[in-house]
């Protein structure tokens, strides 16, 4: 009994030491830019970019295999911030390669189709879905980032992506045309 215990502990300690040394010896330095990129990304690990989590995307972006526009929930704002550190020399607008100022989208659950399976509830990276087992679920619009994670897991296809509804508070007038705009348009015509 004692022999077995001692030999196993010795083995464990020895191997542990070996592993520790190996980790020190063959340590791979992660470029600091990965941490920087990771700090800008939303950190929700929603998977909308196709990489394993925000960290995965950050590594790919540091390598240059992913564009700065790869994070759909982050939208233009995040892309602009990323462009500033990933491709600091390039003009931010060209780096975004015409990424339009997309209207923010949110998930919407058709209540008739919802079976209350809790799959989307568990998957939502920002806890934007509320509901309980066998109860209709609904989306908290203010917390939803429009990452599509819930749409993929819904077994009844009850969730769709919709343009985030404008509220009275968020509405504002469109930009009035300046005289210069009017002139150039006339000339163009």
């Amino acid at each position: 009994m004692i022999h077995a215990a001692v030999s196993m502990s010795a083995l464990g300690l020895g191997l542990g030491l070996l592993l520790g040394l190996a980790a020190r010896r063959f340590h791979v330095e992660t470029p600091p830019i990965v941490d920087e990129i990771d700090g800008i990304l939303p950190g929700t690990n929603c998977g909308a970019c196709g990489y394993p989590g925000c960290r995965g995307l950050a590594e790919a972006m540091a390598e240059g295999s992913a564009p700065v526009t790869a994070c759909p929930p982050g939208g233009r704002d995040v892309a602009l911030q990323l462009a500033a550190i990933v491709v600091p020399d390039a003009d931010p607008e060209t780096a975004l390669s015409g990424m339009a100022e997309a209207e923010p989208t949110v998930a919407f659950i058709f209540e008739d189709h919802c079976t209350g399976c809790m799959k989307c509830f568990k998957r939502c990276p920002t806890d934007a879905i509320i509901g309980a087992n066998k109860q209709i679920h609904t989306v908290v619009v203010d917390a939803c980032i429009g990452c599509d994670a819930c749409i993929e897991v819904c077994p009844t296809e009850a969730i769709v992506k919709r343009v985030k509804p404008t509220t009275l508070r968020g509405w504002y007038w469109t930009k009035p045309q300046s005289a210069f705009d009017a002139d150039s348009r006339e000339n163009a015509a």
Binding site: P42, G43, T44, D77, V78, D127, D142, A143, G170
Partner: peptide
């Protein structure tokens, strides 16, 4: 609107961390 988008970005990070 820009302010609120920035606020939402921070909120998202907070929600993800909380989760």
């Amino acid at each position: 609107e820009e302010e609120s988008r920035k606020h939402k970005q921070e909120e998202t990070r907070r929600l993800a961390a909380a989760r």
